[in-house]
Design a binder for these strands. Structure first.
Lengths: 193, 193
DNA sequence: CGACCCTATTCCACTAATGGAATATATATG
DNA sequence: CATATATATTCCATTAGTGGAATAGGGTCG
């Protein structure tokens, strides 16, 4: 529900075109709320209709005209109102965990491969967040502090996942699983064999 | 995209009615993939159409007839195929982080309140996952190991969030912020004041 | 005995998000 | 010169998810 507000936050920092917002989503806000440019433009249209932003068309040649959006007083109020109602924490929602849950019905080798891929990816992301965090340095303003804290969620998140992947790879290794399988076949009362 | 497969996983354990699946979602799979019963019934219908499950109506009096779904061979294959293609890790996507990012445009007191609420909630969830994990004991079968690993993601996730909330509450406390604000107003070139 | 929860499913209106095609020009890179 | 990249927006088809009403008889608790 808050793509709308994510965009409003972006514009609250200063007037921006759809293109600018999309760029900012790629670089910063998108860490916490991803969106395609098509979504952004559509949402921007709605914000304009509701008069939370106003639009100004800048003449350009060669490219389509730039439409610059500025937040309105109503927009600022909407942002405040939004921040006052509690938001739902993101639920864990992941194919991969479902696959683990149903591990008996699934291709174990594939799972291991996916684990390695994820490990890499989480490490990358972790490094990315860390770099952004470093740039902020010691937060000496409230707005830096906010961004820092937000990034720290990202850092923790990716770090835990990476760590978990490493563990999971060990505990699901061929050798580790072989040790298990020897013990269970008696108990394993699944519908197959 | 994988509500479909989450349901298929549930049914792969043994024949179940929509109601059974919904219950299981409340208790276990739903930790990793939430869904309303209305979604489940709809998806079940689609699975049946695609012949990944077959349905058998059990006569009952008093209540609507129970429709029991059993996985088909095609269903098992679909599950395998699904597990072979890599899944996208869940993106961090959270209103709260966006609010932090836009902290200047937002109600700070409200933010603090929400942080406390979240802290509680994450602690609750953490305890919940931990309890489920304990029940599994030392995983002595592959399927237990899978479930254990899945739960461990939940445990880590909730734990990190709880930890972060605690930190954030300190660093966003009135006193902490007061110290900041004294330093910055010169630099703060926001559009207000 | 009334209130409420459990079993069990169907249906529907709605909002949100995905993802990519289409269009058009300037500038930079090799 | 060709190719790619950056600027800038519009449109659209589709999937996924939310949330709650409607129906209906059974059992449980005080």
């Amino acid at each position: 529900m808050s793509l709308k507000y994510s965009i409003l936050v972006a514009i609250s920092e200063g007037p921006k075109s759809g293109y600018d917002v999309a760029k900012q989503f790629d670089e910063t806000i998108g860490f916490f709320w991803r969106a395609r440019h098509s979504q952004i433009y559509r949402e921007l249209g709605k914000l304009k209709e509701k008069q939370l932003v106003f639009a100004e068309e800048m003449q350009q040649t060669g490219k389509p005209n730039r439409i610059v959006f500025t937040i309105s007083e109503a927009g600022r109020e909407a942002l405040l109102a939004w921040s006052r109602e509690p938001s739902q924490p993101q639920e864990l929602k992941d194919d991969f965990l479902v696959q683990l849950y149903g591990i008996d019905a699934v291709d174990l080798d594939a799972l291991r491969e996916h684990l390695s891929l994820r490990l890499e990816r989480h490490r990358d992301r972790h490094a990315q967040y860390l770099a952004k965090h470093k740039i902020l340095g010691d937060a000496d303003s409230l707005s830096d502090l906010g961004r820092q804290l937000a990034l720290e969620v990202g850092i923790r998140y990716e770090n835990e996942w990476a760590d978990w992947c490493t563990q999971a790879l060990e505990r699901l290794s061929v050798e580790a699983v072989a040790k298990l399988s020897n013990v269970v076949p008696i108990k394993g009362s699944r519908n197959k064999a």
